[in-house]
Design a protein around this nucleic acid. Structure first.
Length: 602
RNA sequence: CGCUCCUUAGUUCAACGGAUAGAAUAGAAGUUUCCUAAACUUUAGAUACAGGUUCGAUUCCUGUAGGAGCGACCA
């Protein structure tokens, strides 16, 4: 279906051709929604047309407006202000638009693009619980995939677990030293936190052992006292030796080390799964670094054969990207073992062999912009056509007002804690309002979850991905104003009215009068498809989030100024119900694309 | 040193190169015999700085200042 803006654009182009001649078609005709302060629905900017009309901006606008009014049946009126032609469409046009919308079973219809998209998101390390950064990643990844699906792509969501390496071995070492056979079950601690706690404990053991070795008292900062950084100093400790030994054993497939590794990672996956379920995110396929970390060497060989990759004097394999403004990049260590980029090259190829996708989207923080530039470019240089479809959906970090959240400093940025906190607030606020006395305890819990997560998800998704989010853990997430609960409330409010209105037919009378706000709502509703197309093209859910907020805001204004059930006439009542109903459906649909549920009552 | 990104009310976010820069929140003042007041109405408050391109610049270009990230045979 063609959008109204597109329709007007074409109409204006035809008009210009007739009025000012063929060549005026080369001018970009700019149609936008009219600003609130002016009279009109859509605005054509006439400045670019002046050189063809050879008239003043005002005269050009007048000419175009007159022509459009005479040659269409839906343009009611126009005015020209300083080179802006404001067009007013007829009420009948808007009512017809509303009616068509209300009769469609699906709010939006997009033809399938048959584009196969693989979207990787989340990517946790198994030695630490999920934090607020993962939250942004997951909410973004999930929402983008929903939006892409909605607009016609075939999306497969995958996760990659960074499940091997020295980090998890540190947790294992600490567990061997201090675990005493405890398990998440015996301690009642969620699996990922359980293992994460031992990672933290590893750090403490390092400090203890250094204090003992250098006789530093408990008061002083031990690293300052001995004048070494943690990364250097820890290597002198027995606990680090143990971790390193475990890593070597693991790589040698030693039974003890592998079993412990499996056991501890198993706890972590159980813990992660709980968080994924609460958030409502999922993956069609899991990848594990432990299974892919040796991949990519065949690609290096291929590159050598093609003379794209070469062996340096120090035996490391490298690729020269200086012609593209990047540096020389080592792709394989001189001892022949792989590094991060090696396995990413291999994994990319593996996935392409497996899925033959057109696009591969990596949802990864902007710290890795350079890495993904290299990855894509290297694959392209190797002649992989499909590398053109690689896209790094880069997002900025979530920071506290004082800067980056440090995993070492307390739990302020922990995902599970944050979720628990918003659920608690949702419960508290809901009880304050006291509108759900008739709910069962189970339904009430479900509602707290809907509202709490709605607040959290909207808080994160409303911000443009490439802009950093400042989150102050001292102040809790808001439930009033520009928030998820505001939109959810609008939905519940509409549902309540519709339940009470008890109306069967939604046949509209096109002669009904429209208020300014009603007109704006219908116009806003008609923009929904455009917003989705835009959001999909930019991989940006914040467009949807802001749209839904504006729609809800407009609706609440309308709700306050116009009686619905007690409208003056039946026609008016039917129109307002139809308007309300489609607004609710649009909100529900849009929120679903953000991964947010909407309640019938709250 | 080089490259990339960011800088808009006290604070958190908006604004295809378009009109008098929108919201929210915090502040002040109002609205509930009526459909859900988690709402609505009124009020005050911002484009880091200096140039340039343009009919028109928060947006594009150059420079300056401030912040972040990257430039690993770490991930």
């Amino acid at each position: 279906m063609i959008s109204i803006q597109e329709l007007l654009k074409q109409e204006a182009q035809k008009a210009c051709k007739n009025l000012f001649g063929e060549e005026s078609l080369t001018a970009a005709i700019n149609v936008g929604i009219t600003n609130k302060e002016f009279e009109g629905d859509y605005t054509v900017v006439v400045f670019p047309l002046v050189r063809f009309s050879k008239l003043s901006p005002e005269k050009t606008g007048e000419a175009l407006g007159t022509y459009l009014k005479e040659n269409t049946d839906y343009i009611n009126d126009f005015n020209v202000v300083k080179g802006f032609l404001n067009l007013r469409l007829t009420a009948a046009f808007w009512i017809k638009n509303l009616e068509e919308r209300s009769q469609k079973k699906e709010l939006t219809i997009f033809s399938a693009k048959k584009e196969k998209v693989l979207l990787e998101y989340c990517g946790p390390n198994t030695n630490k619980p999920l934090h607020i950064g993962h939250l942004r990643n997951m909410l973004l990844g999930f929402s983008v995939s929903e939006i892409l699906k909605e607009t016609g792509s075939d999306v497969t969501k995958v996760n990659i677990y960074n499940d091997r390496g020295i980090a998890i071995c540190k947790s294992m070492a600490a567990y061997i030293e201090r675990g005493n056979g405890e398990t998440p079950e015996s301690s009642g601690i969620k699996g990922d936190h359980f293992v994460g706690d031992y990672y933290v404990m590893f750090g403490r053991i390092v400090e203890e052992q250094l204090r003992a070795k250098y006789k530093v008292s408990g008061e002083e900062n031990v690293f300052k006292a001995i004048g070494k950084d943690r990364e250097i100093a820890e290597q002198e400790t027995p606990i680090f030796e143990l971790a390193k030994k475990l890593l070597l054993q693991w790589e040698a497939n030693d039974e003890y080390a592998v079993n412990l590794w499996k056991r501890m990672n198993g706890w972590v996956y159980d813990g992660f799964k709980k968080t994924f379920d609460v958030l409502g995110v999922d993956f069609e396929k899991d990848y594990f670094e432990s299974e892919t970390y040796k991949l990519g060497k065949d690609i290096i060989d291929e590159g050598v054969a093609k003379q794209v990759i070469y062996k340096r004097v120090d035996d490391a394999m490298a690729i020269d990207l200086t012609a593209d403004g990047l540096d020389e990049k080592v792709l394989l260590r001189s001892d022949g073992t792989s590094i991060y980029i090696t396995q990413d090259l291999g994994t990319a190829k593996l996935r392409h062999d497996e899925f033959k996708m057109d696009k591969m989207i990596y949802v990864v923080a902007n710290e890795q912009d350079y890495h993904f530039k290299v990855l894509k470019l290297a694959l392209q240089k190797l002649g992989k056509k499909w590398a053109d479809g690689i896209y790094h959906l880069s997002y900025a970090l979530v920071e506290s007002p004082t800067g980056r959240f440090k995993s070492r400093e307390g739990k302020t940025a922990d995902a599970d804690d944050l979720i628990a906190e918003v659920l608690r607030i949702a419960e508290e606020k809901t009880k304050e309002h006291g509108k759900i006395e008739d709910f069962t305890a189970e339904d009430a819990q479900a509602l707290y979850k809907t509202i709490g997560l709605g607040a959290l998800k909207f808080f994160i998704l409303r911000v443009n991905p490439f802009k950093k989010i400042i989150f102050n853990p001292e102040e809790s997430i808001d439930f009033h104003g520009q928030t998820g609960p505001f939109i959810q409330y609008t939905h519940a409010r509409i549902k309540s009215v519709i339940r009470k209105a008890n109306i069967a037919s939604l046949t509209l009378n096109q002669q009904t009068e429209l208020s300014e706000t009603e007109r704006q709502i219908i116009q806003q509703l008609s923009e929904f498809e455009n917003i989705l197309i835009d959001a999909a093209a930019k991989y940006d859910p914040s467009e949807v989030a802001n749209y839904l907020y504006n729609l809800s805001k407009l609706y609440n204004k309308f709700y306050n100024e116009s009686p619905i059930i007690a409208a003056k006439s039946e026609d008016e009542k039917t129109l307002r119900i139809a308007l309300s109903s489609i607004t609710a459906r649009t909100i529900a649909k849009g929120m679903k694309l953000l991964g947010i549920e909407v309640p019938e009552k709250m």
